[in-house]
Amino acid sequence: MRNLTTLLFAAGLGFLLLVLAAGLPYGHPPMLVGQGILQQAPATTGAANIVTSVVLAYRGLDTLGELSILFAAAAGAGLVLGGHRRRRRPDPDGGFILIAGADLMFPLLLVVGLYVILHGHLTPGGGFQGGVILAAAFFLPLLGRPREALDHTAISWIEGLAGAAFIAIGLWALFARGDFLAPMLGKGVLGQLFSAGTLPLLYAAVGLKVGAELSGLLADLAATEARDP
């Protein structure tokens, strides 16, 4: 009975939303901001990927807030989960195929992650996506050899330094140009690796921070005693 009413509620809600959506435009975005950014972005930031310009230059402060939220969530999760670590019994080692496969994939994933981070201003991708790939690369060997724990001290150092670098670049721009995270350095030639000023540096900091945070979170979650199966 309760499920039936809930389904009815959901169906009614969906119908209501559909009626609202009938008035929404499709294919002709009414926003003017996007048009302005599309026209100005290449000259202002020098990045070929306009989404990167929006994320790091036009809304750079938002990205700093996003990094803080991600840090708070990862720290909270680590805090809640951390009490378990004392009486854990590590899992047994994985089989030969798992260990060899993890060893084979680790350098490949590392290269792909770094490529995605460093080309964030030219091609789709950037610090967040590449950081997730880096976290996966560092988590993979942990599946094969659960005994070799990740070095949490090194991870916190990388994370802290990367976050500090992001803020330092922003403050540098604040003092040199008068705006927090304003584009600095030369813009270079559109479409080349060394272009777009500080944007690749910012994305590298974001990538390292996200990668360190998430691999620490994954290691926290994986470090569990094997419950009775």
Partner: peptide
């Protein structure tokens, strides 16, 4: 429009 895409990325 790139702005909604940046929002969704976040």
């Amino acid at each position: 429009d790139p702005v909604p895409q940046a929002l969704v990325l976040t």
